[in-house]
C-alpha cells in the first residue's frame, strides 16, 4: 500500500455536491477522497502546495501519472517523491475555442508541455501568467497548486518572467 501523506489538513472525502455545474460524468477533475482513490496522498500533498508522484523502490524510477502498482515489476509498495517546482516550456498552444464543458468561460487559455528541472518528466498543463501569444518555448515556469472551486485541488504552471 502507498503510505498516506504524513501531514496536511484533512480533505473532504468527496467533493461537495454542487447545485449546478458540470455533470459528474463530464467533469474532468478526478475524485480525490479516501473512499474514491488509493492516490489520496497525492491530493493531500497538492493541498500543501507539493506536486508529487510515485517511485518504485526496486528500480528507482518514477512514473507519471502516480500509480498504485509499478508497471515494470508490479509491486504495490511504491514510495512518494516530491517533484521539482520549476521547469521550462517544451511546447505550448492555446484553446481559443471549442472548449470542453465548464471551461468555456476560461477561453482563451494556454496549455503546454513542461520539462521539469532535474526530473525526467515532461508534464502537460495549463499555463497561467501571461497570454499565449507572449509565451516562448524554453521559458521558465513554476508549478502551482489550486482549489478547483469545490474543495478538490489540482496543479498548473505559471510563468515566472
Amino acid at each position: 500500500m502507498i503510505p498516506a501523506a504524513e501531514t496536511g489538513p484533512a480533505p473532504v472525502s468527496s467533493p461537495p455536491k454542487k447545485e449546478r455545474g458540470t455533470p459528474f460524468l463530464l467533469d474532468f477533475v478526478p475524485l480525490e477522497g479516501e473512499k474514491e482513490t488509493r492516490l489520496k496522498p497525492f491530493f493531500d500533498r497538492l493541498r500543501e502546495g507539493r506536486l508529487s508522484t510515485t517511485k518504485c523502490p526496486r528500480d528507482g524510477r518514477i512514473d507519471w501519472p502516480p500509480r498504485v502498482t509499478c508497471p515494470r515489476c508490479h509491486t504495490e509498495s511504491l514510495e512518494w517523491i516530491d517533484l521539482p517546482d520549476q521547469g521550462r516550456l517544451y511546447a505550448f498552444s492555446a484553446v481559443l475555442g471549442g472548449a470542453p464543458l465548464g471551461m468555456e468561460s476560461e477561453v482563451p487559455f494556454a496549455v503546454g508541455l513542461v520539462d521539469l528541472d532535474g526530473a525526467p518528466l515532461r508534464l502537460y498543463g495549463r499555463i497561467e501568467g501571461r497570454p499565449w501569444n507572449e509565451l516562448a518555448v524554453g521559458e521558465p515556469v513554476r508549478v502551482e497548486t489550486y482549489d478547483v472551486g469545490d474543495g478538490r485541488f489540482f496543479y498548473r504552471f505559471r510563468t515566472v518572467r
Binding site: 477533475v29 478526478p30 501519472p65 498552444s93 484553446v95 496549455v111 508541455l113 498543463g125 478547483v148 489540482f154
Partner: peptide, 20 residues
C-alpha cells in the same frame, strides 16, 4: 483525469506537435 482538467483535447495537442 490527468490531462483532461487542463483542457486537453486534440487541437492543442496537435498544435504543439506542429509547433515543435
Amino acid at each position: 483525469a490527468w490531462d483532461g482538467p487542463h483542457g486537453a483535447t486534440a487541437p492543442p495537442f496537435f498544435a504543439m506537435v506542429a509547433q515543435r
